[in-house]
Write a protein that binds this DNA or RNA. Structure first.
Lengths: 270, 270
DNA sequence: TTGCGTGTAAATATCGTGTTACCAGACCTC
DNA sequence: GAGGTCTGGTAACACGATATTTACACGCAA
């Protein structure tokens, strides 16, 4: 944003920050090259700040950054001025004073247009344990060989792998299926079973999906300690990844477990 | 244009015709399907003509034709209304009365943004497998001989070949046809079949388009190992690239396939 | 009209999904 | 710790969803 009005600046930056936008506020126009370096999505500019030579400046900016959304937000103007600004390459012209919300909508509309035909954000493949998850191929691999996951299996694995928390069945169902889980539905269990089977055949010495009894499932790649290490310690390793869960119910359960250590082993069937 | 004001209509149509635009003037809103059939670049609409249900109508139009530039040109309105219109998907909101010239500039700006992203700058001929894709001729070749692709077939092939990802049908449809795919539409499947057939006759020993069940299609030229020695052996050559998998389950599956060769083709749809 | 490209409809083949039933293990109460 | 109850794991199966293919109708242009 290039603007000198402190109030306008304040209102807009507050609103945008709560929306999670990254705003840079300047009180004088930057060179087109500087704008390129900023890697902007949109530019909101008050022509009064630019002063004489506005049209030339605007022209240079628009031709240097054809993909940039340019919104002119300035004081009273004539039709001829607005026509000229739009012809030069601006995407919209807003007359001050204006509502912040309306300006934001106009910016969004301009960016939306620009974004529409861009290739979707390249989803990176992630490695977890011995498994590679490739969202671009809707598939997971152990080394080079595919796990042959179905679409739904992949979505569940992908969801689980993106979080260290314990996910309740209802949560999983709602995020994968897209609607609320019916009471008594065991679909998630069944798919977790299929996933586990395919994970086990592809990478037998690791455990990936852990059961939290009465709660849900948690994804965490862990080398399979093969049942021999646990006895020697005399007590199971207490390593709830991520510490105390955010979910108050799960936290309460954890505290219960700490208070009754004799029942701890049972809760970690993993 | 959807508007009932005769004067406004007259002025605008005169001006647009001298600019060489093709204008269709309606006095009542058309269904999204009718708009699709018109193959428009932009839609200028007075919400007063739509009456109640304007937002729903606007929503349907914008989601059905994501590539259409929508300009709302209507009487006095509140900030909330304008915000809502823009949020739903309109590109601009002009308040009547307005200057024809300014409205035209706004339309131009919206179309300009839309057009900019339409044609990928890539005009070079690319080679994939045994096929050469020539965007400048709208045609693909195997060596010197043309595949005789139709325009739509070529566009789909060109789109697929530019990405290694799995592309969902809706994605393919929207980028090739230019508007949202109707539910249950199988056009993409049919064109993929025609493409596959032409690719197979031109280059039988390669596979190009791979099906990802429940997801979509992916383009990747891969030499097709097998199917040519099959007759002499009386059994399909089982040479899945990489030989027999280490994974016991996959190996078992291969043995199953050997036992029931008639099901082999189906299992190799990839 | 004919020919061509395009899109729809229907038949078929195949695969995936989710239900169900049953069993094993875990939890709770006593 | 024993018995009852509940939760989760497993397998089989029927149904529904999805893909492929063929055939055909429509629109457009020569």
């Amino acid at each position: 944003m290039v603007d000198r009005d402190p109030g306008f600046n304040q209102v807009l930056s507050n609103r945008l920050r709560t929306l999670g936008w990254d705003l840079r506020s300047l009180s004088s126009p930057a060179t087109p090259e500087a704008l390129v370096a900023m890697r902007l999505n949109a530019l909101v500019i008050d022509l009064a700040v630019v002063g004489p030579g506005s049209w030339e400046y605007l022209d240079r900016v628009c031709s240097r950054l054809p993909g940039l959304a340019v919104i002119i937000c300035t004081g009273p103007s004539s039709v001829a001025q607005r026509v000229r600004g739009l012809r030069v390459g601006a995407d919209a012209w807003i007359t001050k004073p204006c509502h912040a919300e309306e300006l934001i909508c106009v910016i969004e509309a301009a960016i939306r247009r620009h974004r529409r035909n861009e290739m979707p954000p390249l989803e990176e493949s992630t490695r977890v344990g011995q498994i590679t998850i490739r969202p671009d191929l809707y598939q997971a691999y152990a080394g080079e060989i595919s796990l042959e996951l179905t679409a739904r299996e992949f979505e569940i694995l992908n969801l689980l792998s993106q979080s260290d928390r314990v996910l309740r069945r209802e949560e999983i169902y709602e995020r994968v299926w897209g609607y609320a889980m019916a009471h008594g539905d065991r679909s998630v269990d069944v798919f977790v079973r299929k996933l586990r089977q395919k994970l086990r055949t592809a990478s037998p010495e690791w455990n990936y999906i852990h059961t939290h009894f009465g709660v849900g499932y948690r994804f965490a790649p862990e080398p399979d300690l093969g049942t021999q290490g646990a006895d020697s310690l005399g007590m199971p390793e207490l390593d709830v990844a991520g510490g105390i869960p955010d979910d108050p119910e799960a936290a309460a359960r954890l505290l219960d477990e700490l208070a009754a250590p004799d029942r701890l082993a049972a809760s970690l069937i993993d």
